[in-house]
Nucleic acid binder design. Structure first.
Lengths: 190, 190
DNA sequence: CATGGCATTTGACTTAAGTCAAATAATCAG
DNA sequence: CTGATTATTTGACTTAAGTCAAATGCCATG
C-alpha cells in the first residue's frame, strides 16, 4: 500500500510541463480558519482539496452525534468521495481542525483536463485505488479489532495524530465514545 | 450511485471494435463448482473475475471465523481489490457459493491494454469508483445501523440474496453471529 | 424411508462498549 | 491572574450482540 504512494509520487514527478500548467490553471489556493467548513452536508462537493498545511477532517452527523470518517494532514486529499464522484449532495462535512491552506481543483475543470492528459486519468485512478485500499483496511479493522487495539494501532501508526487532534475527534474516528477512549487511555498509560 | 452503473454500461456499450477484441483476446472463460475457490488467502489475485452466472463470495478468516466481505452475482466483478491492485498476497478468499461461470482477465494483460485503449482506463476508474462508493456505504451502515436494521435493509434491497445464500454467509456479511441473525429473523417474521 | 450430516433455532449467560451524570483538568479571553 | 468555557476523566448502570451448548428441522443418499 505504501508502494502505491510511491507510484503516485513518481507519476506526479514525471508529469510533463503541459500537464502541469493545465493543472495549475485550474488550481486555486484557499485558506480556512480553524473550525471553518470546506464543505457542508447537503452541498455538492465540487472541489477536491489538496492540503498544503494544517489539519482537516471529514465527518457526518448521526442522531446528533458527529462521526469523523477521516483526518487529513499535509499532502492528503480531502474530498467527500461519493459526492465528488456523483456530484450529488454530500452526507459529509469537511471542516478545518486547525487553520488550513489548500489547493483546490474544481471537479468539472479536472474532468475536462483529465480527458486531455492521460497521465491525469492514471493519477486519478491511482489515487482512487489508494483511498479504496485505505477504506478496505478501515472496514477490516472495525471487524477484527476491538476498541483498545484500534487505538493502540493508531498510536503506533500515527502518533502525531493523537497529539494534534482533540480526543473527541479521535474517539469518533475510532468509532467509540469519548468515555471509552478515555478509559482505554487510562489503562494503556504506564 | 445507480447512475454510476448506467455510466459504466454506456461506456461498455460504446467500446469500439478494436478495444473489444483486445479485451476478448485477454479474457478466458472458467467454471467452478460450488465450494471451489477462485482465490485462496495468501495467493496473489492475478485475475479479475466477471461473473457470467452463479454466486460467489469474498471472505477472510479471523480467529477461525469466516467473515464474508462481499456476495457477488451475475454481472458483478469479483476481485480481492487490494491484492489485485498491489499484486501482493491476498487476505481474502474468493469462493463459489453455487456453480459459477466467470470470464477472467489476467491483471498484467489488462494493465497492458489499458495503456493502449483509453476507454479501458476510464472504465477501470469508473468501476473502482463504484466499488469505493459501495465500500463507503457499507462502512456508513455499520456505524449508523444496528444489526436488525442492516438485515431489514438487505431484505428490502436484495431480497433475492436471502433466498439464494445460506444464512451463515448472510450473517457474517452483516457482521453478526448466526444466532443473532436467527433471532432477528424470528422477530421480523409476522 | 431411515439416518447421518448440515442448517437453523432456542436458551442461558457473558461481555464490550454505550449512556447519563458528575467531577476534574486544561485553556483562553479579558 | 481569574472566572468561564471546553476538554477529559471517573463512576454507576444499561444494552446490543456474542458465546457456548443443546435442540430441532431439513435434506440427500444409500
Amino acid at each position: 500500500m505504501d508502494e502505491h504512494l510511491l507510484k503516485i509520487n513518481s507519476i506526479i514527478e514525471q508529469l510533463d510541463g503541459e500537464t502541469l500548467s493545465a493543472l495549475e490553471a485550474v488550481s486555486k489556493i484557499k485558506t480556512y480558519k480553524k473550525g471553518d467548513f470546506l464543505l457542508y452536508q447537503g452541498e455538492v462537493c465540487r472541489y477536491s482539496f489538496w492540503i498544503e498545511s494544517g489539519i482537516a477532517r471529514k465527518f457526518y452527523l448521526n442522531e446528533n452525534k458527529e462521526l469523523t470518517t477521516e483526518l487529513l494532514f499535509e499532502n492528503d486529499l480531502a474530498v467527500a468521495f461519493s459526492s465528488y464522484v456523483t456530484q450529488q449532495p454530500s452526507q459529509e462535512f469537511i471542516q478545518a481542525v486547525t487553520d488550513v491552506r489548500v489547493s483546490s481543483i474544481d471537479n468539472s475543470s479536472f474532468q475536462r483536463i483529465k480527458g486531455q492528459f492521460s497521465a491525469l486519468m492514471e493519477l486519478d485512478l491511482l489515487m482512487t485505488e489508494y483511498y479504496t485500499m485505505w477504506l478496505e483496511k478501515r472496514l477490516f479493522d472495525f471487524h477484527t479489532l476491538d476498541a483498545s487495539t484500534r487505538y493502540s494501532q493508531l498510536l503506533r501508526d500515527q502518533p502525531n495524530m493523537i497529539q494534534q487532534v482533540p480526543l473527541t475527534y479521535i474517539a469518533s474516528y475510532l468509532g467509540i465514545s469519548l468515555e471509552t477512549l478515555s478509559r482505554i487511555r487510562a489503562k494503556i498509560k504506564y
